[in-house]
Amino acid sequence: MTVNVLERNNVKQFGQGSRPIVFAHGFGCDQDMWRYIVPQFERDYRIVLFDYVGSGASQLHHYDPIKYSHLNGYAQDVLEIMDVLDLSNAVFVGHSVSSMIGLLAANQESRRFGDFVMIGPSPRYINDLPDYYGGFKRSDIDELLNMMQMNFFGWASYLAPIVMNNPDRKELSDDLEKTFCSRDPHIARQFAETTFLSDCRKDLQYCSVPSLILQCSDDSIAPIEVGNYLHAHLQQSTLRLMNAKGHYPQLSHPEETASFIHQYLTAHQQ
């Protein structure tokens, strides 16, 4: 059976520029997460948005629990999208786990990638002490996964305000909670397991694509130690500390997020 990749992943294209910029959402989200950022790039770039299978308006019947039990399954889809659209020298903006999905894809076909922008990235969420601090103990992740299985909507209600971390703007965590709750609970739980048990530290050394690491302040998912680790282990990386708190600066602080991306791309035009 021939798969229509663009329909499978609900791919959208627009913008007046020629250089492609691909926005890749993180766990539990969809392409709507970029709604405040995208208008600031439409004039100068070819915008590409998509949903991972199991997220947003993707085609759920293409979900394969074996394929998507590893981040390489998602990376394969990214490469298929880029192949169908014939993208090269693209800017890949990955939020959270999408930063590592993009890196895995680029390690296979680097010519398609010109620059990375990694927002709240982490190569490993679980601590590997004393050498590595990811922010979580294995028991923390197991508890999270159990909560998702036992009470999915309770999990969404609990997690959204913690990871958004903007308590004076309740509408942001409410919107995030609604997005979490719109996912298929079984697929969301497996994506969580694939994400939070992943370990991409050994893959960092093979990445030759220049990257901007946007490190949020007070991020419960990707603490500053993780940003520093990535900066130390990624060739040609630039680390920028943001005033934005939480794990979703594209929603809570879109102007700051877009400004950092513009500054970086202007300085690294190719």
Rank of each mutant, 00 (worst) to 15 (best):
V93Y: 03
T2A: 09
Q31H: 13
L197S: 14
H62L: 12
Q31W: 11
L214Q: 03
P254K: 09
Y229Q: 08
G94L: 01
G102R: 00
E225Y: 02
P167L: 13
M118I: 08
Q269D: 15
I187S: 02
I187N: 00
L265S: 06
V93E: 02
L87T: 04
D203V: 06
P123N: 09
I126N: 02
V22F: 08
I213Y: 07
Y63R: 06
L265M: 12
N165K: 05
I187W: 00
Q205R: 13
Q13C: 14
Q269I: 09
R8C: 09
T238E: 15
C216N: 07
G28W: 00
C216Y: 01
F14P: 12
M150F: 10
K12C: 08
K12Q: 13
C181V: 05
M164D: 09
F27G: 03
Y229P: 03
H62Y: 15
R138W: 10
I261H: 02
G114R: 03
P210M: 11
D174F: 13
L71V: 10
L85P: 01
V3S: 10
V78P: 00
H186L: 09
R240A: 13
D64M: 05
M148P: 00
Y63G: 05
S220W: 04
I37E: 03
I37G: 02
V226D: 00
R46A: 13
N72H: 14
Q149N: 11
Y206S: 12
V53K: 05
N146I: 06
A75C: 13
E80Q: 14
L214I: 09
L104H: 10
M164R: 07
F136L: 04
I213K: 03
N72G: 08
P123E: 10
F41I: 06
E109R: 13
D77V: 08
V84L: 09
T195Y: 02
A267T: 14
R240T: 13
R35C: 13
L241Q: 12
S18A: 15
V22P: 00
